[in-house]
Write a protein that binds this DNA or RNA. Structure first.
Lengths: 123, 123
DNA sequence: ATTCTATATATAGATAGGCTATATATATTG
DNA sequence: CAATATATATAGCCTATCTATATATAGAAT
């Protein structure tokens, strides 16, 4: 039985629209391959973000098609891995998306009744 | 031509998953009818949230089916309006969703590089 | 009078992005 | 030798939002 009172994962609908931001943010730290991105996101989020392979890989392919990230196969290591890193355009996009994200967070905050709103620093 | 540099509206994908929260939050202020919810959201967001009728009305019907809001036709006024108000369950749900939202915001903040992250109060 | 705009609600169908399921392949552990 | 973890990939499903359309009336403009 699943625990509905303290759900261990964020709803996929909620994350829709910020998955790109998350992936770009994780890649800004250091170059990663798909599987490690998946793990890093899971760990960094306290298991609340657990992207399935069928979600993550299409995102990576899309980001690469948009030239926000670039890839390189590593055949030398024990396992065949496809490493990704941010491009210059990708870094810019990360900044833009972070800005948009903050604007959106402020917007929601202003809609919430004061009792339920976090205090946020002015934009 | 649309202005891509300073988009006047939030992407629909970004808002996906938090529209219910917004509608519940607006209704927590006072009872509203559909059209006024649409306007209030647009004004309160600085034109950045502009729900189309085809988006809003299905949301209201779904929230009512979940008994989070209740409706009442007003035939007396010049125009036929369907007024909505929060139920007790709806108020609880608003609190829950606000909590989840805050947790999610904190999660994203922790993923962003410090330079791009807002400083948030501890949860 | 008539046309246009704003107000007010409703729904069918298109779109898009995340999910499920499945496939392939290899290293490691028991 | 079997089971599990690592590693990537894609076809097809699901669903919430959007587009387009429909209906109806009040008020303003011509």
């Amino acid at each position: 039985m699943t625990n509905k009172t303290t759900p261990d994962k964020f709803d996929s609908q909620l994350m829709r629209g910020s998955l790109d931001l998350m992936v770009l943010a994780i890649l800004d730290r250091e170059a990663q391959y798909g599987y490690s991105i998946q793990q890093k996101l899971r760990e960094a989020s306290g298991e609340k973000v657990d992207l399935k392979a069928g979600t993550l890989y299409p995102i990576l392919h899309r980001l690469e098609a948009e030239k926000l990230i670039r890839s390189k196969w590593d055949e030398s290591s024990a396992r065949k891995r496809k490493w990704y890193e941010l491009t210059k355009t990708g870094r810019k996009r990360l900044q833009q998306q972070a800005q948009t994200w903050h604007a959106y967070v402020h917007c929601i905050q202003s809609l919430l009744p004061p009792k339920l709103a976090l205090t946020l620093p002015a934009p």
